[in-house]
């Protein structure tokens, strides 16, 4: 019982060098040898898009892709995936250009409060990488480990179906609301027009 007796907890092991490729960047951090991947990603690597919902592998918010396979980072020890290729939600987009799955989640209402969205995106991207023509049932199986409390899943499945169509090249990527403004000088800026008297 709390307060009755004091049991010293296992001391935190000293930090140990941990290296992996996260979102195509090689990272090297100091992490305890018993560290959970979720903690390392959030607290050390700084990929805060990986969400902590339950710590027990029940909600799927912390799903990341490890060597192309979606896994729960809260149930993975960092040491197990040393040197692996890890993809989080931050790695899905190419700079400011969103991946089809991201745009479709946005345009189909697949994201309401958005907390579960990173996990869903990673899980569904992993599906689309392996299966270009998933049925609704296959999509459901791919996201069965992810809980969403807002959407009731229906619009998420719609979004993944729409993204699959784009992946197959049967539809153009719809312009997202925040697609970056077009670069007016795609081939590099010409001679800048400076106001008179402006120091070069």
């Amino acid at each position: 019982m709390v307060g009755d007796e004091h049991v010293t907890m296992v001391p935190v092991p000293p930090g140990k060098r941990w290296a992996a490729t996260v979102n195509s960047q090689s990272v090297e951090v100091l992490a305890p040898s018993n560290a959970v991947l979720l903690d390392v990603l959030r607290d050390k690597v700084g990929t805060l898009g990986v969400k902590r919902g339950c710590d027990l592998g029940t909600c799927g918010c912390c799903t990341v892709m490890i060597d192309g396979v979606p896994k729960l980072s809260c149930l993975t020890l960092a040491g197990q995936v040393e040197g692996a290729n890890i993809l989080t939600v931050e790695g899905l987009s190419d700079g400011a250009h969103l991946a089809p799955i991201q745009t479709c989640f946005s345009t189909h209402g697949g994201s309401q409060c958005g907390f579960c969205t990173p996990g869903f995106l990673v899980a569904s991207q992993a599906l689309l990488n392996n299966n270009p023509e998933p049925t609704r049932q296959e999509i459901a199986c791919a996201i069965e480990g992810n809980l969403c409390r807002c959407t009731g899943y229906q619009q998420i499945i719609d979004a993944i179906e729409a993204a699959a169509v784009i992946h197959r090249g049967e539809a153009a990527l719809p312009a997202a609301a925040s697609s970056p403004h077009a670069d007016p000088h795609p081939s590099g800026p010409g001679e800048p027009t400076m106001p008179p008297g402006h120091a070069r």
């Binding site: 990929t47 805060l48 898009g49 990986v50 969400k51 902590r52 989080t88 939600v89 931050e90 899905l92 987009s93 969103l98 991201q102 745009t103 989640f105 946005s106 345009t107 209402g109 994201s111 309401q112 409060c113 958005g114 907390f115 969205t117 990173p118 995106l121 997202a176 609301a177 925040s178």
Partner: peptide
Amino acid sequence: KSIPLVDSNAKVTGQAWYGDD
């Protein structure tokens, strides 16, 4: 008109900042 939520791009890129972020 059915338009995406104005903050949905922050959410799909993992940039939305929740309490623990």
